[in-house]
Amino acid sequence: MPVFHTKTIESILEPVAQQISHLVIMHEEGEVDGKAIPDLTVPVAAVQAAVSNLVRVGKETVQTTEDQLMKRDMPPAFIKVENSSSKLVQASQMLKADPYSVPARDYLIDGSRGILSGTSDLLLTFDEAEVRKIIRVCKGILEYLTVAEVVETMEDLITYTKNLGPGMTKMSKMIEERQQELTHQEHRQMLVNSMNTVKELLPVLISAIKIFVTTKSSRGGGTEEAERNRRFTFEKMSAEINEIIRVLQLTTWDEDAWA
């Protein structure tokens, strides 16, 4: 079971998480006790500079986004990485005075863990905002699908098809890119299956609307049946898009909690 739910986050955090985990084990087993830690000024300064750059770019991202949840959730992550960076700087200064300092070792572990945790919070917050972008497109399609109910002429149908096409293409592209990003195989498959169903149902819906329009204009029988058929296809498509929206919001942790 993957710990990180996207490949990007996994590729960034997995290696450093393993390193820190190993360091913690060494610390707990007393392997670092009684040993002098050398001058860490250079690697700590590199972390400090990287934190400063990340927070600067992060703040720019928060300023430019219209996503209110990201504006709210991102700043605590900045504080977490900045505080952790300060701990590392303090540890480095303490070790300069005493390479055997025990509190300095604790600060190093706390600081490293804090950087990992803060970076994880930041990346997850950003990823959630990216998911919300995809969901907005999906909801736009859901909304436009309901317009099918007011299509009564062939002209309307042409306009409807023309308007629906680009949105569908955009949603399909976004879902394809997202499923490739996910580390959880089941979630990937669920997105692919639902998107394929939506794509298969699109011409069926257009055809159902066409039959409804033709039946209605000929003033013969079968209008009710055509309407039922149109509604059935519309409801099936809506259900699949709602399923896509649900799966997009799942993370590996949801699955773990459920298990």
Binding site: V16, Q19, L23, V32, L40, L54, V57, L122
Partner: peptide, 29 residues
């Protein structure tokens, strides 16, 4: 800015990894 933020996060993770390595290498050595 979003992509740049992800790039900077990657740089920070690498710098943290290097730091942890430096601490560990000494302990192992």
């Amino acid at each position: 800015p979003g992509r740049e933020m992800v790039r900077q996060a990657r740089i920070l993770a690498q710098a943290t990894s290097d730091l942890v390595n430096a601490i560990k290498m000494d302990a192992e050595g």
